[in-house]
Every structure is written in structure tokens, then in C-alpha cells.
Design a binder for these strands. Structure first.
Length: 343
DNA sequence: AAACCGGGGGC
DNA sequence: GCCCCAGGTTT
């Protein structure tokens, strides 16, 4: 049993973690063949989603856009459809933008080169540089931050912790296996050193973990204060018509710098919070959608249209799935389509 | 339904 | 450094 200083891990502890990773790491599609393209796409997907949810998206993505060139030349709409359901759609736009840069300038050869790419920050650049380029670069994500905070019992505030975790990660990097080392720390954080109910007994680093020794594992790291969600009340209007004996739905494209830019959505109207607009005669119910720090309530209204409508594109209902529609509006469609089928 | 996690980027 | 982005999972 070593009880080394967690600020500066002993070689024995480092090897212990790497061996645990070698023996327990999951068989993930992007790990099998860690080319820059595959690591890049997987890392950006993983920024906001769990591993399990990412796997089918990653595999579909690689079929749709097998190379950076195919991504660079692809239609933005196709890219958004492939990303549909993952959320934070700006990331898909950034992937597309970066693909075009890479397609003309070549692959970034360094950490700094990756950091200059749109949508790539400190974490993702460090991950790609170490995993795909095999460069000895550290990285820090939420998992590594938590592992660091617990190992050293660092109870600093959330913003302080970030700086300290990066220092620690740089100091303790196993340079000869940087990619594996970074992934081992993240895997540890995701599977054992979890935010809630950590599995300390199974942890390869428990003998040098200060928080474990002090019995304060679940109190570290300090949780950031969260703001209450802002409530928004909107009416979502589902315009519909029968055209050539087919049901068609009126949709718009979210404008630049608006929510869900470039995605296909139902027209909405701001509502007075004090009014319960579901009382309106054409309202069929409500949909709630919580994102980041907004709680949106949509009063869904059906409205039949005869002929055209300016600013609204009518699309065959059966073709809706080919359009990039954010989850919130898919919920609206789910409610509206059920009602429309009853008519 | 409430609580929770999360990385990039603009300021 | 702080705050916003326009979400999903866990409890």
C-alpha cells in the first residue's frame, strides 16, 4: 500500500490507474481507431452527452460523413439532421466550419492549432492532442476536475478549482502514455469517482486519496451555486392544410442569432405569463421543455390554413423527419400530430 | 418535477 | 472571471 502525496502522484499510483484502465476500459467505437477525425468528432459529441447516447450518433455520423472532406462539402441541413437530438446545435455548425478550414489548410499538427479551431476549447484540444496526435498534453474535464479535487481534498470554489486542476494535470501527466492517462482519469471519474455514490472501494487510487481518508468524498468538489430557471411562456402555432390530398405543416427556419439558429421550428408567439393561453379555442395542450436555465412552456395551437401563408413553408407531414428539428419542437409535433390524426 | 452535470465562447 | 448557450440523465 502506498499512500503517496496526491498532489504529486507516485509512479506506482500512476501505473495502478493505467492498469485499471487497461483492464476495465470500455470498447468504444472511437477508441478502436483513434484517428484525428474520429477522436475530434467523438470528443465534440461527448461534450454534452453521455457515452451511451453518443455511440449511435457517432456510428451514423461516420457513415454519413466518413471523411473531413465529406463533412466540409456537406449541406448544413444534413449536418444538423445528423446532430438532431444531441442539442447545443452550435457545435454542429462549428464542426462544419472547422471541417472547411481543415479541408483547405490540412490537419492542425499541434495543441495550439486545435485550440484555434471553432468549437475547440482547452479540454477538447488537450484530448485530441493526447489521444489522436499522441502528444504529451494534459487535459481537464468535469471528471478529471472531480478526481483531482477528491484526491487532494481541494475544497476551493468552482472557478479556482479549474486552475488548480489544470496545474495538477500537467504535473502528474504520464507523458509516455498521455492519451491513455487522460482517458484513464476521465473513465475513473465517470465510473467510480462519480458525483454521487462514488465506488471508493473499487478505486485503484483509494490508498492515496485524501478525501477518502478524511471521509469527505461526497462533499468535494464544492458545488457551484445554480441560478433558478427563467420561465418563458410561448404559443407554438401548428399551421396545417391539406394540399393534393396530403397533410402539410407550416414551419419556419429559426433566424440567425435566435434560438435554434438554422433549425426547423414552428412559429411561436410570446405570451403574457399571467394568461393561460391553453384556454384559447384552438389550443390543444401544452409542452414544457427545460434547457440550461430556461423553462419554456409552449401552448400548442392548431390552426388550419387555406392556401399560402407568407413566411411559412408548408412541408408534407411525412417529410418532417428529414428536417433538423430541435427536441422542444419535436415534442410539439408529437402532441399536434396525435391531434391531427384524430381529426 | 427537481436536481444535477457540462464545455465553449463572448464579454 | 462571469454568464450564456436553447439539453439529457438521474433521483
Amino acid at each position: 500500500m502506498t499512500t503517496g502525496n496526491p498532489e504529486s502522484l507516485s509512479e506506482v499510483d500512476q501505473q495502478r490507474l493505467l492498469e485499471w484502465f487497461d483492464g476495465s476500459s470500455r470498447n468504444l467505437p472511437w477508441r478502436a481507431n483513434p484517428t484525428p477525425y474520429r477522436v475530434w468528432i467523438s470528443e465534440v459529441m461527448l461534450q454534452q452527452t453521455t457515452v451511451a447516447a453518443c455511440i449511435p450518433y457517432f456510428e451514423k455520423w461516420m457513415e454519413a460523413f466518413p471523411t473531413v472532406e465529406s463533412l466540409a462539402l456537406a449541406d448544413m441541413k444534413r449536418v444538423l439532421v445528423a446532430w438532431q437530438g444531441l442539442g447545443y446545435y452550435r457545435r454542429a455548425r462549428n464542426l462544419h466550419k472547422a471541417a472547411q478550414i481543415i479541408n483547405t489548410q490540412g490537419w492542425p499538427p499541434s495543441l495550439e492549432g486545435w485550440k484555434a479551431m471553432p468549437g475547440i476549447g482547452n479540454y477538447t484540444a488537450g484530448a485530441i492532442a493526447s489521444i489522436a496526435l499522441k502528444l504529451p498534453t494534459p487535459t481537464v474535464d468535469g471528471n478529471i476536475k472531480r478526481v483531482y479535487a477528491r484526491l487532494t481534498a481541494d475544497q476551493s470554489s468552482f472557478s479556482q478549482l479549474d486552475k488548480r486542476a489544470w496545474k495538477w494535470a500537467a504535473k502528474n501527466l504520464v507523458s509516455s502514455r498521455a492519451g491513455d492517462w487522460n482517458q484513464a482519469l476521465m473513465e475513473l471519474g465517470a465510473t467510480l469517482c462519480r458525483p454521487l455514490a462514488p465506488k471508493c472501494e473499487a478505486c485503484p487510487l483509494k490508498s492515496c486519496c485524501l478525501a477518502h481518508r478524511l471521509g469527505i468524498v461526497e462533499q468535494v468538489p464544492e458545488k457551484p451555486v445554480r441560478k433558478r430557471a427563467v420561465e418563458l411562456h410561448l404559443a407554438a402555432i401548428v399551421y396545417w392544410r391539406v394540399h393534393h390530398e396530403e397533410l402539410e405543416i407550416g414551419l419556419i427556419q429559426a433566424e440567425q442569432s435566435n434560438w435554434w439558429e438554422g433549425m426547423t421550428i414552428f412559429p411561436t408567439q410570446q405570451l403574457d405569463q399571467s394568461l393561460d393561453q391553453t384556454e384559447k379555442p384552438n389550443a390543444i395542450g401544452r409542452v414544457t421543455h427545460t434547457v440550461t436555465h430556461h423553462k419554456i412552456t409552449f401552448a400548442v395551437c392548431l390552426e388550419q390554413v387555406h392556401g399560402k401563408m407568407s413566411g411559412v413553408n408548408f412541408v408534407r407531414a411525412s417529410a418532417l423527419s428529414e428536417l433538423p428539428m430541435p427536441s422542444a419542437h419535436q415534442k410539439i409535433w408529437k402532441l399536434a400530430s396525435k391531434k391531427l390524426l384524430d381529426l
